[in-house]
Design a protein around this nucleic acid. Structure first.
Length: 498
DNA sequence: AAGGCGTACAACCGCAAACAA
DNA sequence: ATTGTTTGCGGTTGTACGCCT
């Protein structure tokens, strides 16, 4: 939907003289008018982009530089694709998000004609929708990468405080999440053993750290896409403490109960681990995630949970069939239907006599179809389960074994995998056919304002059951729409310079 | 018809990196 | 090396619209 200057807007015509703006003038805020657009376009045509604060000074446009830049990048620059995302673009976004996390600009650089803002909006909407439907965020065939820690993460709004109140209530609360965020624990359809859909072992998602002060369980973190929203629970002399703003729960792993023999638990939100993997401030969790309904704090109401098996079912059903223009709603319908086929959950409880202090019980309910994946043994200690987890993942993954080992290893991995690693991972996963964004190609030139020839519908043959990557890549291979305006090259477009 | 809700979209804000003086 | 400015990114908010009850 396009704002139009005539629309009533409470911000329309609003002005600001907010400090930080380079201009001493009062800046206009709110929707842009056609006249303003024309001024900005004319200015950029003459002077090229960049130096946005000068736009206001030189053109008389009562907009701050920031606003001008945004308007240009998101709406006025040539080659912008308008309209809904194609199925290929959608799947590419999902894949990119799995790899990059909330790196909208970088994602946009892989989607010609699309802006980071568009992608962000799309993703957030999709995420919210799928959360509401209790569907996994990523299909099974998407392997979220571990090294992007700022993901938009499925969240429950079981906040630290509510968790602790839950814990200290003396009840035997039951909590499950409708989200499938720990799909790596699901077995493949028809199989009775874990087949990680993530390229990691579970010890990379759980970190159980025991030290002289007690025991800490950290969910997510190392090799999961949820690490940025991971939560640690520490059981120590002070009781339980948690970190992280809210508790991401595995869908396939119902996380049922915590009962403690200790006194009421003080709340604190420290980083429980020295590696600092848990921090509430850098979670990067969109507020929409808190929209998720608060799970019951009393036992007995389990949420239906979508598992990756469902997603897998869906994906399998789709196999050989073009997704065509099937969109999110269709996906949701598919997966919701598949949801009904989920076998009943299997329960696993673990209890652990930890140190001298808290006695706690974790009750895992593992959602899987076929059962028997090794998490069924009730009453195992954490260490025992660790062993199970390790063994099973050793079977199916080169990634190795000891959770405690992983705890330390993971940190060094993180240290050694900064952004460059993200990039190399992305490059490694992308077909070489994907060209650089057209505005970076100095040699090609197209007419100013020429529309991209990658448009919805004709971008790819949607009847071809081909991977989105290759489809998009092919399309991109044929895209030659570089362009310039005057002497200005479009080198500053979003997503390319960072 | 009216209200609620979800969705799509536009735009703003704060922060931090990059850059220039 | 320091400081100020510019730019870019990601998160958040606000608004219109469509659908449903």
């Amino acid at each position: 939907m396009a704002y139009d200057g005539s629309l009533a807007s409470k911000n329309s015509g609003a002005t600001t003289s907010k400090s930080g703006g380079s201009s001493r003038h009062t800046m206009k805020k709110g929707p842009w008018t056609a006249a303003e657009d024309a001024i900005l376009m004319e200015y950029v045509k003459k002077h090229g982009e960049g130096n946005w604060n000068a736009v206001q000074r030189n053109s008389g446009l009562m907009r701050c530089g920031k606003s001008c830049r945004l308007r240009w990048a998101n709406h006025l620059r040539p080659n912008l694709k308008k309209g809904a995302f194609s199925a290929e673009e959608e799947s590419l976004i999902v894949e990119l998000h799995a790899k990059l996390g909330n790196k909208w600009a970088r994602m946009a650089s892989q989607l010609p004609g699309r802006t980071d803002n568009e992608i962000k909006n799309y993703w957030n909407t999709r995420l919210k929708r799928r959360q509401r439907a209790g569907l996994p965020i990523y299909p099974l065939d998407i392997n979220p990468q571990n090294h992007h820690q700022q993901e938009t993460v499925p969240q429950t709004n079981l906040s630290s405080s509510s968790l602790v109140s839950l814990l200290s209530s003396g009840q035997n609360p039951s909590y499950t999440t409708p989200l499938s965020i720990f799909d790596m624990f699901n077995s493949s359809p028809g199989q009775n053993q874990i087949t990680p859909s993530y390229p990691s072992d579970p010890s990379q998602h759980f970190k159980i750290v025991q030290d002289k002060n007690g025991l800490a369980l950290s969910l997510s973190s190392i090799n999961s896409p949820f690490s940025s929203s991971s939560v640690s629970l520490a059981f120590n002399n002070q009781g339980i403490s948690s970190s992280g703003p809210s508790l991401p729960m595995p869908s396939s792993l119902q996380f049922n109960c915590l009962s403690f023999g200790t006194d009421s638990m003080p709340v604190s939100c420290p980083s429980l681990e020295k590696n600092g993997s848990i921090s509430g401030s850098d979670m990067g969790i969109p507020s929409i995630q808190s929209l998720f309904p608060t799970p019951p704090t009393s036992s007995g109401s389990d949420y239906a949970i979508a598992t990756s098996n469902i997603a897998h079912d869906r994906d399998e059903n789709m196999e050989g069939n073009s997704r065509g223009n099937r969109g999110l709603l269709e996906d949701l319908i598919d997966e919701s239907q598949a949801l009904k086929r989920v076998d009943k959950a299997k329960e696993i409880s673990l209890d652990e006599d930890n140190n001298s202090q808290g006695k706690f019980l974790w009750d895992y309910k593992l959602m899987e179809d076929g059962g028997g994946n090794g998490f069924e043994e009730p009453g195992l200690s954490f260490d025992q389960h660790n062993i199970i987890m390790d063994q099973q993942y050793e079977d199916s993954s080169p990634a190795h074994s000891s959770i405690r080992d992983k705890t330390t290893k993971s940190k060094s991995d993180e240290d050694n995998n900064p952004v460059d690693d993200d990039l190399s991972s992305l490059l490694a996963n992308f077909p070489s056919a994907i060209p650089m964004p057209e505005w970076n190609d100095e040699n090609s030139n197209i007419a100013k304002g020429q529309a991209s020839n990658l448009t919805r519908g004709d971008a790819v043959d949607e009847n071809q059951p081909e991977s989105s990557h290759s489809q998009v890549a092919k399309t991109l291979e044929t895209t030659e729409n570089n362009w310039t305006i005057g002497a200005s090259r479009w080198k500053n477009l979003p997503g390319f310079t960072r």
